[in-house]
């Protein structure tokens, strides 16, 4: 068995034991998933992809797909990327936000972070900030905590990252979404095969079958797009492959969330049902670290620069 399969299997085991509706509800109320974090640290998952960890960056992103599938209520994308960039070996919680007018905004789980890294869309230089300066208070559409550091933020160091850091975060969101999309498809299939109306399960109705077929196709495309982003790490195409992946997966989110909610009817609109923990994350993540429009522009400018007659070559060069 290869490393990636081992990681995936043990992550699946831990998440199925520890991540459930009750935990997701509690975390949305402001609790920190302490026991889950401890499990992650014990397994060394928080250092996946870090130098000296014996794992690759690709393992990190494959792990994020699993995190997405379980809606893991911790800032795993930020933790993993920050640890990788800082070559961390410890179990300190590091998070990431965006540089903004001399401050830092949209820091995931800011009040739990001992270090905060701040990135900007067009720079490879990442700023380091002490976590204590951060404030809590905001949350994204999924209720995941987002804090900030008011300007002027004290920069305690800088580091340079090889693959564009903003794009790495976008790829991280892409992988999380790819995993969550799979979970949402599974929820839709399960609900359709259990819910009975007109004397039979609603899965027997062609309208429902076709909705879920569309969802399955979008989910398949999302997986392939995300994998292409992972494969482009450390290559000159990285920015553009991430652009294609984040935009394509973001488009899938709109279709999948809409269809699977419709299949669930009013049940899926209740807070009591777990579906919203997944769909709200999808809606939040497709906007974070660049929406479809942002990344489509980046990719479109690249194609415009190539010109009509070299466009196909760019599409077909990489398997």
């Amino acid at each position: 068995m290869d490393t990636e399969t081992l990681i995936i299997e043990s992550a699946e085991r831990i998440f199925s034991d520890h991540v459930d509706k009750a935990l997701l509800d509690k975390c949305e109320q402001g609790a920190f998933a302490e026991a889950l974090w401890q499990q992650i640290v014990d397994q060394g998952f928080h250092l996946l992809g870090s130098p000296d960890s014996g794992t690759e960056a690709a393992d990190l992103f494959a792990f994020l797909k699993i995190c997405g599938r379980f809606a893991v209520p911790l800032p795993m994308a930020e933790v993993l990327l920050a640890n990788r960039w800082m070559a961390a070996k410890d179990s300190v919680l590091r998070s990431i936000g965006i540089q903004h007018n001399g401050g830092v905004i949209d820091i995931a789980w800011s009040s739990h972070a001992e270090w905060i890294l701040a990135v900007s869309p067009d720079s490879r230089i990442v700023e380091l900030h002490p976590g204590q300066a951060a404030q809590e208070g905001l949350a994204n559409l999924a209720g995941e905590p987002r804090g900030s550091i008011a300007p002027p933020a004290l920069v305690q160091g800088m580091l340079e990252v090889e693959d564009a850091p903003y794009a790495q975060l976008a790829l991280a969101r892409t992988c999380l979404m790819a995993g969550t999309l799979q979970a949402v498809l599974d929820l839709g299939l399960q609900f359709a095969s259990e819910r009975r109306q007109f004397g039979r399960t609603i899965s027997k109705f062609q309208a429902i079958q076709h909705s879920l077929a569309v969802v399955a196709a979008e989910v398949a495309a999302a997986q392939r797009a995300a994998d292409a982003g992972i494969d482009a790490l450390s290559s000159e195409r990285f920015l553009y492959e991430v652009a294609a992946a984040k935009a394509r997966v973001g488009e899938a989110v709109g279709i999948v969330a809409e269809q699977v909610h419709q299949v669930h009817g009013a049940m899926g609109f209740t807070y009591e049902h777990r579906l919203h923990h997944f769909t709200r994350r999808l809606w939040a993540w497709r906007d974070e670290w660049g929406s479809e429009f942002y990344w489509q522009q980046i990719l479109g400018q690249q194609f415009a620069a190539l010109g009509a007659d070299r466009a196909w070559d760019f599409i077909a060069t990489k398997g």
Partner: peptide, 13 residues
């Protein structure tokens, strides 16, 4: 640019 990029991303996938 966004229109071109949107279509390009689909083609690539």
């Amino acid at each position: 640019a966004a229109a071109i990029g949107r279509l390009a991303g689909h083609f690539m996938t």
